[in-house]
Nucleic acid binder design. Structure first.
Lengths: 211, 211
DNA sequence: TTATCCAAAATTGGTACCAATCTTAGGCGC
DNA sequence: GCGCCTAAGATTGGTACCAATTTTGGATAA
């Protein structure tokens, strides 16, 4: 259930689409880089066909851009685009708040607190990638309380579109620190069933603008 | 700007992905049908490669399902799934209401009224497909007032996922009649800048439950 | 010296072929 | 007569090859 956009059973960790996407998000291919098929072929040890399929999928995901007879290059996310997608995420993640409030139980709160704690612990000991993944786990656990499976995949798709440089968002240690605190605040608001406060927190959290 | 999910310049009307998708949505391939590559090859007069790419893209769009070494078949949209996607559409289309209200001007209202009128006129004279497309034009013109380009594409993707049988939704003439009226009501609420009423109308409209 | 043009190298993208797998039909045994 | 096993047919999916296009490097001329 961790994979967001793959086929049913071919979703091995060795899937070229996922590998390339990870490397793009890790910053190995900076925006604008041309992804040559031969290079990818040798780097991931896959056939030409699978590479082509992967590039085509990433084009559909708007992660790379395709120029006929020229190749594929990593997409540059416009500032406007980033803002637009953030707006959509805010609409979705605040939109489910009523459902979250009405459906959660004590066990869910417990689980969320554990995940938030994981994130905070990794602040000291974990790598940036571990931190990133822990953050994802928390957020998906949060919205999955709504019981809307499609919402999970839609948000995953949106995240993949913006996070061509997820690392750069977290360059400041202070920002991540605040994120960890906000996670706990969100759980508190959820537990208190405070609709307004929870919406406000989520919006701040996505906008990455403290207060 | 009518194509929602294709490459930049290969977006001819002869693209296999679009053709197959249209035929699925037109009901030519009912849910569960196995799409054999050879048949598609001859039907659309395309190379094997393009057919494979199209099927892979449709798999990503969740329009067809892929079973390795067995083939691709038209996806059966679960009732639960349809409901989940409707929820998401409601969150998005009601979520932009504040922006719509703050940004629209007289010319926009005029334009929307013309589109709504087109839809109503086609009720008598147009084919079902024309009606469907007119409805799309209205809805996209509506949400595009928010100035959020990404929202347009996201909603388009959501629509494509559910509308494996868009025709069947409109089997009753009465329902389409109501839709046409609701369009005008939505415009009125927008013009009056009535936030609550507009949200209520949009929710009803998507849920297809009159009052 | 610099700009233009031509040729060679590299890359993409399509086509054809072939192996692996599944389905189906037929025959054999119980 | 029924069920199982086997072989043939069909379909998918991968690999290799080749044509079309673009870029790069160098040579020539102004």
């Amino acid at each position: 259930m961790t994979d967001t956009s793959l086929d049913n059973q071919e979703s091995a960790e060795t899937d070229a689409t996922q590998l390339i996407l990870q490397d793009i998000q890790a910053g190995i291919y900076p925006p604008g880089t041309w992804l040559k098929q031969i290079d990818l072929e040798t780097r991931y040890d896959k056939g030409r066909n699978e590479i082509r399929r992967a590039l085509d999928r990433l084009t559909l995901k708007r992660v790379v851009e395709h120029v006929p007879n020229r190749g594929y290059h990593v997409y540059q996310t416009d500032g406007k685009q980033w803002q637009d997608i953030s707006e959509i995420r805010i609409m979705l993640e605040t939109g489910v708040v009523p459902k979250l409030i009405s459906r959660h139980n004590a066990a869910d709160i417990e689980n969320l607190r554990a995940l938030a704690q994981d994130f905070q612990d990794l602040l000291l000991s974990g790598t940036l990638l571990e931190l990133y993944e822990s953050n994802l786990r928390f957020h998906y656990a949060f919205i999955d309380l709504a019981g809307n499976q499609e919402l999970h995949t839609v948000i995953a798709e949106l995240r993949q579109r913006t996070s061509s440089a997820p690392v750069s968002q977290w360059k400041t240690r202070a920002r991540v620190d605040i994120s960890a605190k906000e996670h706990f605040q969100m759980i508190d608001a959820l537990e208190a069933r405070d609709d307004q406060e929870l919406r406000r927190l989520i919006e701040c959290h996505i906008r990455q603008l403290p207060e």
